[in-house]
Structure formats: C-alpha cells, structure tokens
Design a protein around this nucleic acid. Structure first.
Lengths: 180, 180
DNA sequence: CCAACTATCTACAATATTGTCAATAGTGAG
DNA sequence: CTCACTATTGACAATATTGTAGATAGTTGG
C-alpha cells in the first residue's frame, strides 16, 4: 500500500502497461472517465467474487477471520479505496453484498446456536461490520503502524489476527440471548 | 469521505483557495512537491495534537472509544490516508505516537487493575491496534457500508460505536492474568 | 531617505495530458 | 473478391500543469 488513487491514473501509463498506444485505450473506453468506470465495474465484480468465495467456505470453527484479513490485504482494500475515491460522496452504494454476508453468517449462527439460546441479528451485523472495517483498516494502515512500532510485520500481524479471531469467537459463542 | 489524494492536488486550486496566484505558492514552497511535504508536516502535527488531547483526558469508564472514532471521522483518517498515499511504501514511519498511546493506556490499566491481577501489555497493544484500525476503517468505508445497507447513518453509527465500546470494555476488565 | 529583502503579480516557457482525425491493416459475411 | 466493420496507429490540436523571469510594491534596518 498504496498506489495512487484514481486521480493519479494516466492514459499513457495504462497504454504502456497494456503494450498499445493511448488512442487505442480511448477507442475502447471512450474517454479517461470511461476507463475509470470500466475499472470500477471490474473491481466490483472482483469484490463480489471474493465475497462469495469466502461465504461458500465459511465454517463456525474455521479461519474466516484470517482469510478475511488476507483478502483485504491482497487487493480488496485497495479496490474499495479506489471505488470510494472515484465515486463522489453522494453516489449510490453498490457495496450491497455486505448484507449478504450478514445474512449468511447469521444463518450459520442460527444453525449452530447452543440449545435454548437465540443469536441476535444485531450482534451479527456488528461483528461483520467490525471485521470488515478492521480488515480494511489493517490492510491500509496496519503495516505503517507496525513499522512505526518497530515490530516485525509478519509476526505482529499474525499475532494480532489470532487475537482478534479469538475475541470474536469468544463473543460469538457467548452473546446469545436465552430463547424468549 | 473522500477528497482526492495527493495525486489530485493542483497548484491552481490551492492558489485559488488561498486567494493568491499560483507562482506565490511556488515562491513559498519551492515546488509542488515542497507543498505536499509541508502539508504532510502540518498533518503530522495535527495528528500528534489530536492524540495528546485524547490521552490527557482518558479515563477508565470514559467515552474514549467514541471520541477516538469521532477524531478519525473528522479529519484524522483523511490525514493518515493522505500521508500514506504521499509517502512511498518504504518510507520511515513517523506515526510513532501510537506507541505513546499504548504506554498511556497500559499505565491506566495497571493503575485500575483489579487486586491480584496484572494486565498483559500485549492485550493493551492489541486493543489499541484494533481501535485504531476500526476507527480508521469506519471513517473511510463505514458510511458506504451503512448506505449500502439502507440504514440511517447517524443512528447506525452510534449503535455500532456503543456496541464496540462495550465489547472492548468487557474484554479490558476480564483479560488480566492472575498475578504470578 | 536608501538599500536590501520579501511577497506578489503578469507574462511566458516547457511539458504533460486528453482527445480528435485520417490512414492503414485485419477480419468476416455475402 | 468486395464491402463493411473494427482495431490500431502516428500526427496533430487544445488545454492543463508546473515552473521561470522580470517588474512592482511593501517592509525593515541603517
């Protein structure tokens, strides 16, 4: 992290990277703006794919947390950041698949809930939100924070992820209201 | 969130905003790069000020979490993002004051620890890291996530912050090893 | 007042960046 | 093969962006 945002994109650079001349880029995307829009679409696709891949393999005792952090670390955070910096603040969301994650995880919680208890959907929502913003935040500023602290990136990161996963696991297995 | 990163900064815009001509900007900062460096220095100052302001008023039962989120929301996250996007990946950190936060919070924990228990510094570190990346992440992508979910920004945000504060408080008051 | 210095501006230069155009070559349908 | 269409390119145009130079005015210390 981090490459320049959308404001730093140059037709020349894209053309050179693609091994063509810059008018070819314009021919295919219409304009610089069209190129940015196309990249955003592809980003959203990639994000959705990451998410569904995650969901399809989620298990209660699994390493979902670590895999979420890994996904954000290698690409997802960068893509989301790019999207946010592309779209003006008022633009309609398009990050709608987060709701699907909440639904999927809550279904899991219901399925594996301890007898006599019922998990709260608001808790599920909060856990997903926390995990998302934490994974995003760690991908963007985590390395800098660890570097500033002088700790070893890899080891410190893994230690934190383990700690966080344990925290969430602890919370998820205890925060269920008695069935009423 | 979010204004263009450093790559989007134009001398014209700065000059217009300052009510002067663009050569005046160059006269004072030498070059565009000099301007960016100066802005970064000022950002770091601002960040440090926010941090010490936070630390000087921290209390065990207080609303430190909410205030941290608020600080990131109105400026701190934007500043950090700008810094990260300015400095090449290898650049030495300069976000060193996070260590001071860890030290200060741990001193608090030691002072208010339950009798017969001793708080673990690694826990303190992890809690600070989590709070930092979560506050950063929520400032940057939180509004988009809530917008995508169709919930009311203000209310949902406050609900989450309260939930998170409770989670941390719960953890902080229980995660202490017996004195050995 | 005078000299040196600073801040500021207009005008200009040099380059970067986006976009257009006309020419060329390939490709596929009939 | 011929026609229509697409992809690609070099050359060019228009504007944006950064930076320089000289002129002008204000300010300060002597």
């Amino acid at each position: 992290m981090t490459v320049d945002g959308p404001a730093g994109l140059r037709l020349q650079d894209v053309a050179r990277a693609a091994g063509v001349s810059h008018p070819t880029i314009l021919h295919h995307f219409g304009s610089r703006e069209g190129l940015v829009r196309a990249l955003n679409l592809r980003s959203l696709e990639g994000l959705r794919n990451s998410v569904v891949a995650q969901l399809s393999s989620a298990q209660p005792g699994g390493d979902s947390i670590q895999r979420t952090f890994a996904a954000y670390r290698d690409g997802m955070a960068q893509r989301i950041l790019w999207l946010i910096q592309s779209a003006p603040p008022g633009t309609p969301g398009s990050l709608t698949f987060f709701d699907e994650i909440v639904a999927a995880l809550h279904a899991l919680r219901l399925k594996f809930a301890a007898p006599g208890t019922v998990p709260d959907i608001e808790d599920t929502r909060a856990v997903i939100h926390l995990t998302s913003i934490a994974a995003f935040g760690d991908a963007v500023i985590g390395p800098r924070l660890r570097q500033a602290s002088g700790v070893k990136e890899r080891a410190a990161r893994e230690r934190f992820e383990t700690w966080f996963a344990a925290l969430i696991d602890l919370y998820m297995t205890t925060a269920s209201k008695p069935r009423g």
